[in-house]
Design a protein around this nucleic acid. Structure first.
Lengths: 182, 182
DNA sequence: ACCCGCATGTAAGCCGTTACATGATTTC
DNA sequence: GAAATCATGTAACGGCTTACATGCGGGT
């Protein structure tokens, strides 16, 4: 049920078409927060429109429909946002792999830890670029400022992952020297 | 498709029944890595057994069946572990909420940021306890040591979230003083 | 004897993925 | 005129949730 709120949230920022929303997911959401394909987005938009939570505000070339959030859409989005579950359940394949690292032998473990390190440093670099762009823009009085909050979250998360993967490799190295012949 | 590997991974550590596995998900996996209910676990175990990836090694009271991973199960688990997707897609409701923070007004934002802070400090405290227990145990030569890796990952992740939520609240405070009357 | 926790299961329905399908507009 | 991109849709199938369902065993 989160998809509908992701869509409402994006439309609360600015009106967009299904195609626009699919691209936003792909570019800025799917790596950190949520992902969805167009085959799921279009039907959900139609449902939201039926329920009066969004409206078609423009029709363009190639059947393009631009949607905007309505007042009742905004109310429903706020309801969802201010009532977070007390203990959110998680599904994160990367972290699952990490938990299962101990089932591998030392050689395999090393390869995977290097992978985590590389992933974290690449994602970290990407986000530094995004933040740089934010910081170059003059402090506008309004919205865009808050995108920095999410970006900063990503920065700190990946920095932690990078530090962890380095630490883990050191630990493994030390353990190996203490226990020759595994 | 990750559930089957989560099960194989847990059984690679030690034999367990469906009931045991459901409890393990609940207690140590669902907050960080993966969650699944018994109604999904039991059918999947039967499928894994049919495919010869796990075996029933014991039958106890109340119809309890204890499973152990087989050699081909181990092979399949390893295959999955050492071929991680290049860009893992994420679905994390907490982070999604965080991305949508900008759609709320200042008062609501404050409440939510305090919530993130509280959640991070509670989860952080939980994990400190787990780590303490690890560190009290003498360095055994074998497996249990590696559980520390995952715990350390959690520790650093929550520390980052805690630091972020504090920083975000400070930013918001400063912004509010610069922009009276929102 | 009763209750709680152990232990496993099934079915309906929703959410999400993959694949199929179609056509218009812009760009080169 | 061809190719790339814009733009929306449907259908089959698999993953996951919620609810329903059943019974045994151990502790008091």
């Amino acid at each position: 049920m989160s998809l509908r709120y992701a869509l409402l949230g994006l439309l609360a920022d600015e009106p967009a078409s299904g195609y626009d929303l699919a691209r936003t997911f792909e570019i800025s959401l799917q790596r950190w927060a949520w992902h969805a394909r167009h085959s799921q987005i279009y039907p959900e938009l139609n449902k939201l429109a039926d329920e009066g939570l969004i409206d078609v505000v423009d029709e363009g070339a190639r059947g393009r429909r631009t949607y905007a959030i309505t007042d009742s859409g905004r109310t429903e989005l706020r309801e969802w946002l201010i009532h977070p579950p007390t203990a959110p359940l998680v599904r994160n394949e990367s972290v699952l792999r990490l938990f299962l690292l101990n089932t591998l032998d030392t050689a395999d473990r090393k390869v995977l830890l290097r992978g985590y390190q590389r992933e974290a440093s690449e994602a970290g670099a990407d986000i530094e670029n995004i933040i740089e762009r934010f910081d170059l823009q003059p402090d506008s009085d309004n919205q865009p400022w808050f995108g920095r909050l999410a970006a900063e979250y990503g920065r700190r998360t990946y920095a932690a992952q990078l530090a962890w993967s380095t630490w883990a490799q050191d630990q493994l190295q030390a353990w190996e020297q203490d226990h020759p012949r595994t």
